[in-house]
Design a protein around this nucleic acid. Structure first.
Lengths: 223, 223
DNA sequence: CGGTGGGTTGAGGTATTTCAAGGCTCGTGG
DNA sequence: CCACGAGCCTTGAAATACCTCAACCCACCG
């Protein structure tokens, strides 16, 4: 059963609260754990389950035939993913770090949606949230400079991770780059630049813990 | 009433057929005509209506504060748009050419969706179609070259306009560019390049009528 | 006719990519 | 305990895809 479902989800998945709705129907199967880098499902695979991140982080991406990769979204704790309601997945998803997820059979969900308007409306809300994110991301990918993209990324993560005043990014530079439509070197340079401007600082040697020193000036960079 | 609703819509708006469902409830208001370039609604305006293109073509876009523009989608004959089901529009939309649309009050739709599962599922399907398009477009904007983008655009339009063997594009080069995340010059050069390769030809002087001579080779350019 | 709104093409500039080198951390095995 | 390689990150220098600026053409229209 899916009780106590991470109520503090201020992120994109605004419908999370309403998953309580779904939970009452006892269709949650169980938890499952994936190792760092493990594939959760592949593009064009039949979509059997939908998932919720309990712990860890997930990337979902598309590939071109020559290996170019575009990450469409990162799924953090509390997020629901795998909700392509065509019966086939449109992305490949992988665990970025050691990740545990909750599973739910998609067909029973489908069934529920047909019987209960509220479930259907919940699905609609979740899908709309995803659409909205995709729309904003198109603007970023089509029209923003590298610095603006990285600034937008940091602000997004700041809003979604929001653990403390220091962000612990789960993903590497290459993941960020493939999310932002850049190369990892460009991302690195942009971060260095922001560091040099005094807008952010690094903690530890791994460079994945980032502290926002001046959220206001960062927001000004993101048009 | 919304009968005879352009059944030949093989495009993204696969849910079009199901709009028949909606039509039965007599919430279609009337038709309205917009002049070339006229704004249909603006970003952040309250979303009062949803629309269906009867004749013409529509662009919907987002702007950055300095004028950079990203077109998220073109809406052609038969397409439904304005379906942001947050009560506020997330795009600005304009008629590309003289365009007539059908209107439907959004609130009554909302009301219907709450009462009828089928309506809710229709909305979900339409939203999912839009999401799928946005996901594919992210890959294009983030990772494809200018030639690949233009090739993909031509193939998309070929599938959606599919009037005869000659495509009559309603939109200018700048619109195409802002859709593909390029400049109009780059689009023009890519088209010239494809022309030079014998893959496509132009009809008339306006350069908006394009004939695909070699659809197969074009498809190979779109990874 | 002159002006405006597309469209094409060339030349030069630039943001980002590509290629390459080096540093740091961490796990593994000698 | 240290050596070593692998993974990750940064930084520099060179290459390039795309952008910018500019000129020109053509069709259309008052």
């Amino acid at each position: 059963m899916l009780v106590n479902i991470n109520a503090a989800s201020a992120g994109r998945q605004s419908a999370l609260g309403e998953l309580g709705e779904l939970s009452r129907a006892r269709v949650i199967l169980s938890e499952f754990k994936y190792n760092r880098g493990a594939e959760i499902y592949g593009q064009t695979e039949p979509a059997e389950y939908i998932y919720q991140v309990v712990e860890g982080a997930v990337r979902s991406y598309k590939l071109l035939s020559d290996g170019r990769r575009q990450i469409g979204a990162f799924h953090l704790v509390g997020d629901i993913f795998g909700l392509e309601n065509s019966s086939v997945h449109r992305f490949t998803t992988e665990a970025i770090v050691e990740t545990t997820v909750r599973l739910m059979k998609r067909c029973s969900l489908q069934h529920m949606a047909e019987g209960d308007v509220h479930v259907a409306l919940d699905l609609l809300n979740m899908t709309t949230s995803n659409l909205q994110h995709a729309e904003d991301h198109m603007l970023l990918l089509g029209r923003k400079t590298s610095l603006e993209r990285v600034a937008a990324f940091l602000l997004e993560m700041d809003g979604r991770l929001s653990a403390a005043d220091v962000m612990a990014l789960p993903m590497c530079r290459r993941d960020i780059a493939d999310y932002l439509g850049l190369t990892l070197e460009t991302v690195s340079r942009a971060l260095s630049h922001l560091h040099g401007m005094g807008i952010l600082g690094f903690l530890g040697q791994t460079q994945r813990q980032i502290v926002l020193r001046d959220r206001h000036r960062l927001a000004e960079l993101d048009f």
